Simulated scan of single mutants.
Amino acid sequence: MEGPPHGLVSGLEVILTLHKELIVYASGIPKRIRIRNYTMEDYEGMIAIQRESFPPPYPSELWWNEEQLHEHITRFPEGALCVEADGKLVGSMTGLIVDESQLEGSHSWSTISDNGFIRNHNPNGDTLYVVDVCVIPEYRKYGIGKWLMQTMYEVVVHLRLRRLLGGGRMPGYHHVADTMSAEAYLEGVITGQWKDPVITFLLRCGRLPIGVEANYLDDEESLNYAALMEWRNPFYTGEERLGS
């Protein structure tokens, strides 16, 4: 991770720029990847990630569009991450900063992300809220999603934020929804009674559940529920951040 902390230096805003290279493995085969901030030049590649990850019948209007991507890189470029491999983009992760008032009561993906435009990004908040993590199917066995998550933790530490938060789908819930609540299902995943494709992944990334949100996202498999999954910055001191 390169660059000084996000803040004000000599009256000028300093933007954290990120560039890291890694070698990842799938079935013993190495692959070199690069994680960096996405930019205007990446619009086509970012939309292609969505298209490959969410093919029809998933509605194309729910993929990122150029207007949304422009908002991401101009409002909070530090939270706009992508992964390159073999000369193309293969994964991405996007977040914004929110404060406690934005999290009071219940919320949905649409309300907390401003329908994906993140115009509600609050630089003075203390929580980095993840609104999207995506890796194309061909590269999912390389552990790229976990490396994206780790990189966003580094952003949280670098910006001196208190935590990372986000709503995780529970796609396995529909199999048992007629016998238990979403909260009971989540507890069963935590105790290892069963595995959930999303929640188990987030647990392996170090995220911990702090609650369940109903009507979070239009998702038949999760019956519209999501688990709020948190990662706390172990270096957080509560001191005022630079530039806040």
Score class of each variant (00 low, 15 high):
2 E>Q: 15
5 P>N: 12
6 H>S: 11
9 V>M: 06
11 G>R: 12
15 I>E: 13
15 I>W: 13
19 H>G: 00
22 L>F: 15
23 I>Q: 13
23 I>C: 10
25 Y>W: 10
26 A>P: 01
27 S>W: 07
28 G>H: 03
30 P>L: 01
30 P>V: 00
32 R>K: 14
33 I>Q: 07
34 R>V: 13
34 R>N: 04
35 I>S: 05
37 N>I: 03
39 T>L: 11
40 M>H: 10
42 D>H: 12
49 I>C: 14
52 E>S: 12
53 S>F: 04
58 Y>N: 08
59 P>F: 06
62 L>S: 08
67 E>F: 08
68 Q>D: 00
68 Q>N: 01
72 H>A: 02
73 I>W: 12
73 I>N: 07
75 R>E: 04
79 G>F: 05
80 A>D: 08
81 L>F: 05
81 L>P: 09
84 E>A: 08
84 E>S: 08
89 L>G: 02
90 V>P: 05
90 V>T: 08
96 L>Q: 11
96 L>C: 02
99 D>I: 03
100 E>K: 15
102 Q>T: 07
103 L>A: 02
104 E>K: 15
106 S>C: 04
108 S>K: 09
109 W>T: 01
109 W>F: 10
109 W>N: 06
113 S>V: 04
114 D>C: 09
115 N>V: 00
119 R>L: 04
120 N>W: 03
120 N>I: 03
121 H>P: 03
124 N>K: 11
125 G>F: 04
127 T>E: 02
127 T>K: 05
133 V>K: 02
136 I>S: 08
136 I>P: 03
143 G>V: 11
144 I>M: 06
145 G>M: 07
147 W>F: 11
147 W>Q: 10
151 T>A: 05
156 V>K: 09
157 V>C: 06
160 R>I: 00
165 L>V: 02
167 G>C: 11
178 D>V: 08
178 D>H: 15
184 A>T: 15
185 Y>I: 01
185 Y>S: 06
189 V>A: 10
197 P>E: 03
201 F>D: 05
202 L>A: 12
204 R>E: 14
206 G>V: 09
211 G>D: 06
213 E>K: 15
214 A>K: 15
214 A>C: 07
215 N>Q: 13
218 D>Y: 07
219 D>W: 03
219 D>K: 01
220 E>Q: 09
222 S>L: 05
223 L>T: 01
225 Y>W: 09
229 M>N: 02
232 R>T: 06
232 R>M: 07
233 N>R: 10
234 P>N: 11
235 F>G: 00
238 G>N: 04
240 E>F: 01
241 R>S: 02
242 L>H: 13
